[in-house]
Amino acid sequence: MAKNSISAKRKGYIGLMRALMVLSAALTCALVLFMIAYVLAKGLPHITWGLLATAPSYMQDTVGILPDILNTVYIIIATLAVVIPLGAGAAVYLTEYAANKRLVAVIEYAAETLSGIPSIIYGLVGMLFFCEFLNMQTSLLAGALTLVIMNLPTVMRTTQESLKTVPQSYREGAFGLGAGKWRVIRTVVLPGCIDGVITGCILSAGRILGESAALLFTAGVAHVVNGFFAGLAGSGATLTVALYFYAKERGDFETAFAIAAILMLLTLLINLLAWLVGALCKRRRNV
């Protein structure tokens, strides 16, 4: 009868599964919290004005990460400046122009393939193609161009997704007024994909910030303070590459953790931004 309850064996199974689920989720969250807390605790005390605002000097035996910060900023700007038009353009082609289904499939398959290739391979090919074949030497520019290829699928995907939300009726309305295709795209379609482009920027910035393997052999490891264009032409370490060198080659863990703490804070910031933009876009669409 209904008053009987389920068997002890079933109760055991349910309890076990429930416990495993809760434990796993708790473990995942605890890991994240631990990693953040550990890095911040170890790193924040070592972040000083001197560290942030100077270049390292062997002569005076001081350590500074100003060049690494600048290099990171330069490479993010340079990469985004190239990848946004390319990726957004590719997305526009796929959603607005492409009529040949096969071609679309090939392009999308290529994008998926790109997003699966490990960054060390990007670094290697970037070194062979940009640094050696195109003779750019080891430079931030070569690094940035390598990262352009890496981030192309991300920007393409986010732009494509936002293009899909532009109602077909807008396009039809504009065409109905006799506008040419390019005009329709410029006036109706492109403004609609701005949130996708912004999301793509944020996600790419996050990936560039965290990237190291692809930059090791393309952007190099120099620590010199330069202006934007001189910086791009020369070799330079980003924060992640610098962290690697301080930790692995120099054994200077204080500096390594200081950089890690900065990276962690920036990662938090980027996640926050991505979340805010996501929430904003959602609200705008619902209005």
Binding site: V39, L263, I270
Partner: peptide
């Protein structure tokens, strides 16, 4: 809980691999 955990997971995805490596080295 789901929203909070989703944030934690996307944070974990965003942690640079050298930071993971550094924690691995020291812990």
């Amino acid at each position: 809980v789901k929203a909070a955990a989703a944030h934690a997971v996307s944070l974990l995805a965003g942690i640079p691999s050298v930071v993971c490596g550094l924690i691995g080295m020291r812990v």
